[in-house]
Amino acid sequence: MALIEVNNLVKQFDDKIVLKEVNLALDEGQVKVIMGPSGCGKSTLLRCLNLLDPPTSGRIVFKGEEITRPGVDVRKLRQSIGFVFQNFALYRHLTVLDNVTLALKKIKKMTARKATEKASYELERVGMFEHRDKYPAQLSGGQKQRAAIVRALAMDPAVLFLDEPTSSLDPQMSREVVSVINKLYLDNVTMFCVTHDAFLAKYISDSVVFMDEGVILAEEIAERLFYDHPDPRIRQFYLGVIDMK
């Protein structure tokens, strides 16, 4: 049984349809990357899946439970979905350590000591332990994103959502973050990742979903999408991505 199953998902903002009947599934331990041109609806898709943006219609099943029906416990759902934002969204008034422990203490009701232990372990995993007492403003972009990933991971989510995790980073820092995500991939962390970054897509994905104008055009392993795909729209997109590099 899939961890997440999406059937005929539609999202409409005012009179603009952003997602048109999207069907998608993610298995436990699987990593899927969603790619596509800007404004194709890929970020909206992620935000619909944890109900940050409520879907207009369609069905989402998470761990066998339909979460699109009314009366579902949104907070409980979100606790089992880690979310990493493009712009990090670290809490600026808290140190790296406190950024990670806040939710552990306030949502998971861990004791301060337990939370610190857990956070330290997770920070160590991505090489951020030495920076635990720094504030976000004192970190580089790559360090910020690593801290944000740890903040999400420490909650032991069933799945990690990454929304363009490398696109506000320069190439050097981007590589730093890619290697961390790659490590999670090798550790079998279930992930859904939206990105523009072909490099990231290639190194961390079991399969790549290609979206355009709110519709999924193709879903294949990275190599088959990247090199000479029969669909001209996909070919053009990858030519553009490679040009940018």
Binding site: N50, L52, R75, K76, L77, R78, Q79, I81, G82, F83, F85, N87, A89, L90, Y91, R92, L102, A103, K106, I107, A148, R151, A152, M155
Partner: peptide, 19 residues
Amino acid sequence: DEILAAEAMGMTRAQGFLY
């Protein structure tokens, strides 16, 4: 975005406001 991040982790609006 920080408030949004807090809510994405499962915090209530009140918690996001308070913390």
